[in-house]
Amino acid sequence: MATNGKRNNLRAWTLFLPGAVRLEGAHEYTPPALTLVKTSIRTGGMDAAIGLDDGMEELTCSFKIYGYEPAVLALFGLSEGTTSPRITARQAINAGGWTGLVEELEGMVSSITPDARPSGATAEASLTVEMTLTYYRSTWGGTEQALIIPAQFVRRIQGVDKLAGIRNIIRV
């Protein structure tokens, strides 16, 4: 249940490749999980251990597209002097009125796995694309929800930069 007392239901979504090219065959998208790496500490004067934030797990996402898409294959891997692809996921949410969730995903396309080729229902054969992210930004109705840039030591959640103090101390 959302904080407004109504469910925020996903109605539709689409993916865009760099250059605002809509990926029309996209039929499944798994956004990155935001997961902390946690370490436990227990001193002699503590009855139980407590968890401490020790950074984040690697950010990954995946999507599936029907058929074969040469534009996606061109994004596979990184080579010297190339920029990471930025894929944009646009999602329409009914939250007592329409709003949008936009996710910007930048990083390395690390895996492109074709489905087995069936003897029937061949039109459903897909490519699964996995990305390892170096940049993730999520906005809800135009308001930033998360901005994570691991190499720059940035983790901003709902406008609060969780790593600013540490970043200033270590001068990153």
Rank of each mutant, 00 (worst) to 15 (best):
M1T: 08
T3D: 08
T3V: 02
N4Y: 11
N4P: 06
N4C: 01
G5A: 10
K6V: 05
K6L: 14
R7H: 05
N8K: 03
N8D: 09
N9T: 06
N9M: 12
L10M: 01
R11L: 02
A12G: 02
L17Q: 05
G19S: 04
V21H: 08
R22G: 09
L23Q: 02
L23E: 10
L23S: 05
A26W: 01
A26D: 01
H27G: 00
E28N: 12
E28M: 15
E28L: 13
Y29V: 08
Y29S: 05
Y29R: 05
T30L: 11
T30G: 05
P31D: 06
P32Y: 11
A33F: 07
L36Q: 15
V37D: 11
K38L: 13
T39M: 13
S40D: 11
T43Q: 06
G44R: 02
G44K: 11
D47H: 06
D47Y: 10
A48P: 01
A49Y: 12
I50W: 01
I50H: 03
G51F: 11
G51T: 13
M56L: 12
E57T: 11
E57H: 14
E58Y: 01
L59H: 06
C61T: 12
C61P: 05
C61D: 06
S62H: 04
K64W: 08
Y66N: 00
Y68I: 04
A71H: 05
V72K: 04
A74D: 15
A74R: 15
A74H: 13
L75T: 07
T82A: 15
T82V: 13
T83S: 15
R86M: 15
R86D: 14
A89R: 05
R90S: 07
Q91W: 02
A92D: 02
A92L: 01
A92G: 03
I93Q: 00
I93E: 03
I93N: 02
N94H: 08
N94A: 06
A95Q: 04
A95R: 04
G97I: 07
W98V: 06
W98F: 07
T99K: 06
T99H: 05
G100L: 07
G100S: 10
G100P: 01
E103G: 07
E103I: 07
E104K: 09
E106R: 11
G107I: 01
V109T: 03
I112L: 11
D115H: 00
A116M: 10
A116S: 13
R117Q: 12
P118S: 14
P118F: 13
G120W: 03
T122D: 00
A125K: 02
A125M: 06
A125N: 08
A125L: 03
A125R: 04
A125V: 11
L127C: 09
L127Y: 07
T128Q: 14
L133R: 07
Y135S: 03
Y136T: 04
R137H: 08
R137I: 05
T139G: 02
T139E: 08
W140C: 02
G141R: 09
E144R: 04
E144T: 05
I149K: 03
I149Q: 09
I149H: 08
P150W: 07
P150F: 02
A151S: 14
A151L: 13
Q152P: 01
F153L: 15
V154T: 03
I157E: 06
G159H: 04
D161M: 09
K162Y: 14
K162H: 15
A164I: 10
I169S: 10
I169A: 08
I170V: 14
